[in-house]
Design a protein around this nucleic acid. Sequence first.
DNA 1: CGAAGAAATGAATCGTGATTCAGTCCTTTC
DNA 2: GAAAGGACTGAATCACGATTCATTTCTTCG
Lengths: 206, 206
Amino acid sequence: MPYRPTARTQARQADNARRLLEQAQRLVAAQGFGAVSIASVAEAAELATGTVYRYFPSKAELLAKVFERAAAREVEVMATQAAAEGTATQRIRAALYEFSARALRSGRLAWALLAEPIDPAIEHERLRFRRAYSAILQGLIEEGIAAGELPPQATATVAACIVGALGQALLGPLADDTEDQDTAVRTAVDFCIRGLYREGPIHADA
Amino acid sequence: MPYRPTARTQARQADNARRLLEQAQRLVAAQGFGAVSIASVAEAAELATGTVYRYFPSKAELLAKVFERAAAREVEVMATQAAAEGTATQRIRAALYEFSARALRSGRLAWALLAEPIDPAIEHERLRFRRAYSAILQGLIEEGIAAGELPPQATATVAACIVGALGQALLGPLADDTEDQDTAVRTAVDFCIRGLYREGPIHADA
DNA sequence: CGAAGAAATGAATCGTGATTCAGTCCTTTC
DNA sequence: GAAAGGACTGAATCACGATTCATTTCTTCG
C-alpha cells in the first residue's frame, strides 16, 4: 500500500494552511476584504490558485476563517483590558485607548472587522464579533452603573455609539484632515467618556 | 435638413434622464449602491439597458450623480437646521435629531452616503459630502465655543465622533437588538451632546 | 527503482454584470 | 409620404475573478 501521508507531509500542509490564512489576513489588513482575491492570496502564500481549494472549500470560507481569527484576537485583548484592576471608568478608558491603539496600528483591519460590507456568509461571523465586543463594553458600563459611577442608561445603544464614534474619528474618511493621531485619540476617548456621564445641560429642549 | 430635435423631444429626454436618476436613487435607498445594476435601473425607468448610456457615460458617473444629488439635499437640510434660532446647543441638538430622523427614514440611503464603500470614482463625491456635512457641525460647535456654551475642543475630531456615534447607533448592525428607535435616537443624541461638554471626571488617569 | 496515489499546478471554464453596436423605430422637415 | 438622422433596443461582447480539472510533480514504500 504505497504512499500514505506522513507527519512530515502533514506538517507541510499545516504550514500551507497557516500561510494562506496569514497572508489572507495581511491582505485584509492592508486593503480590506474587498481587495482580496484568491489569486492574490495564493501568490502571497507562494502557492498556485488551485491549491487554495485544497485547504478551503471557497473564498467565503477562507475569509470567514480569517475574520473569525482576527475577531477572536481583538475580543480577547478587549476582555483582558476589561478584567484589569481599577474603577469601571478607569477600565473603560483603558479599553477605549487599547481599542484605538490597535485600530490605528492595524490599518484597515479594524474597519474591515467593524464595518466593511462583505459576503453575507461572513456577516454571521461579524454579528458574533459585534455581540462579543459590545457585550464587553456593555458589561463595563453596567459595572459602572452598579457601582454608582455612571448613571443608568441604555447600554447597548451607548456601546454602539462608542464603537461608532471611535471608528469614525480614527478610521473614517474624516480622519484625514485631523491633527496628529495621539491628539485625535485623546479627543475621541474623552468625548466617549463624557458621553457616559449625565453632567451638562441635557434637557435644553430645542 | 430633416430632423432636428425639438423642444418636445428634448423634454422627453429630460424626462428619461430624470427617471433614470430617480429610479437609481430609489434603488440605492432600498439596497445601497452595491445592489444597483445598469439593467435594474433601466428596467425601473422603463428603458433598455443600452439607453442608459445615452444619458450617462458610465455606471460610475450615474452613481456619482445620484450621490451628489442625495448628498446635496441632506446637506441643505442640515444647513437649514443650523441656521435656525436658538443657542448653539439647541441648534446642535435639533440638527442631530433631524439627522437621525432622516437617517432612519431613508433606509439604506444614509448608510450608502456615509459609509458604503463604492467605486473610487465616487469617493471623491463622498469626501466633499463629508466635508460639507462635518463643516456644518463644526461651525455649530465653534459657535458654541465662541458663545462660551461649550469648552474649546478639536472640532473636526469631535464632529467625526458625532457622525460616527449616530451612524453606528442608528444604522449599524448593532442597531438591531435595541429598544425602539425613538429611545435609541434620544439615547444617542444625549450621548453626543454630553460628549461636547467638559463635565464629568475626564482625567481620571487610568 | 517503480508503482500507487496524493498534492500541486495553472490554464480553461463559468458566472456576472458593464459596455458596445448593428439593427429598428421615431421625429422632423420638405 | 418619404428622406434624413437621431433615439432606442437588447443581444453580443468584454472584463474580471471564482472555481474546476486534466496534467504534472512529489512522496511513500515494497
